[in-house]
Amino acid sequence: MSVVDAYIKVQNVSFSRGERSIYENVSLTIPRGKITAVMGPSGTGKTTLLRLIAAQLAPDSGKILVDGQDVHALSRSELYKVRKKMGMLFQSGALFSDMTVAENIAFPMEEHTKYDAKKIADIVADKLYSVGLRGAVNLMPSELSGGMARRVALARAIALDPELVMYDEPFTGQDPISKGVLVKLIRQLNDSAHITSVLVSHDVEESLSIADHVCILAGGRVIAEGSADEIRASDDPEVKQFLNGEPDGPVPFHYPEEDVSGRVAL
């Protein structure tokens, strides 16, 4: 791979949950100003990767550099400062259920800036406009459809004009139209605001269609990394199985069993 300007560098990271090892010596790079898609089967710890980058979880070994800073070596207040440069779109949207849409988007600004009410209201309207939901400003999260909630959450994630936006499974459970809208929004935001985007997903088509850079994780390691075209052209059997959705292959159809004899009998 050619030399790129890396925004995030994951270096030899190992992470395990209890006895189960999730990552073993994983290294990957997320280039600045591009959309990087991290793909892989469910349960390979894609969301865990985002939480490691945001330092909500700490790796067992290895380092994660975000814009040159080792996020796991920071003090709590320094970490909170770094997090202001990050926006995260959670899988469920994670809107605060006791606040209106406008209050949700205003929240990070009220918390971290000294803007007056007028300016905050302007920014809220602006951000909502960019996700096409200006009319929803006074609704409660419970009144939104799943797709709308995710768009509001996106507006909130970009309220502080972050340098990095992380999307956790943005397409899961969305109808085709919402998916299309989200794909367009992610692309637009990335290009107009020069954001670095990290997208975690197992929706192959949507992810490949917008990603500049793709990593595929499986079995605790990176099995492929490159541009969308390079990934499509890959002849690695594991990559092919994942992209084409084949039920059997290097990733077995059967969940591994230790010793079948004596256990099948009922």
């Binding site: 945001a54 909500q56 909170y80 997090r83 959670f90 994670a94 918390e111």
Partner: peptide, 8 residues
């Protein structure tokens, strides 16, 4: 988690 991510 969302609060944490917003530095709150």
């Amino acid at each position: 988690s969302s609060f944490e991510m917003m530095g709150v």
